[in-house]
């Protein structure tokens, strides 16, 4: 597999800004169609961030119910320990 073809099939991780724009335009279906054939992921942290805006933009609440979008959490103790190891390398001061 070439580098280009590997990149074309690799899973995608979607950040808050991308999801927020499509959700607020009520066109998450378009995003889904654009990325058809690709495994799409986001994180629980991104969903929490979007949740904070639901009061002003209720459409943001639709993101969580997209079946094509997988949500990666950091829930097991082993995963949270790895997260802590990462924090001890990059620092955590003043971040949420």
């Amino acid at each position: 597999m070439t580098e280009a073809s590997a990149a074309a099939t690799a899973p995608l991780v979607l950040d808050a800004s991308c999801l927020s724009h499509f959700a607020r335009a009520d066109r998450l279906d378009v995003l889904r169609d654009l990325l058809v054939g690709r495994q799409c992921w986001t994180t629980e942290t991104v969903l929490t961030e979007l949740n904070r805006g639901i009061a002003d933009y209720p459409l943001l609440g639709d993101v969580r119910s997209q079946e094509w979008l997988h949500v990666a959490g950091l829930d097991s103790v082993a995963e949270i320990r790895l997260y802590d190891t990462w924090l001890k390398r990059v620092g955590s001061a003043g971040r949420d």
Binding site: T45, G73, D75, I80, D84, L87, S92, D96
Partner: peptide, 21 residues
């Protein structure tokens, strides 16, 4: 709880997350 909640809790208690882990 997930890492996010644990991070918030450790922040409120002013300890690094590793202290609780």
């Amino acid at each position: 709880i997930g890492a996010l909640e644990l991070t918030q809790i450790s922040g409120a208690l002013d300890v690094p997350i590793g202290y609780l882990l």
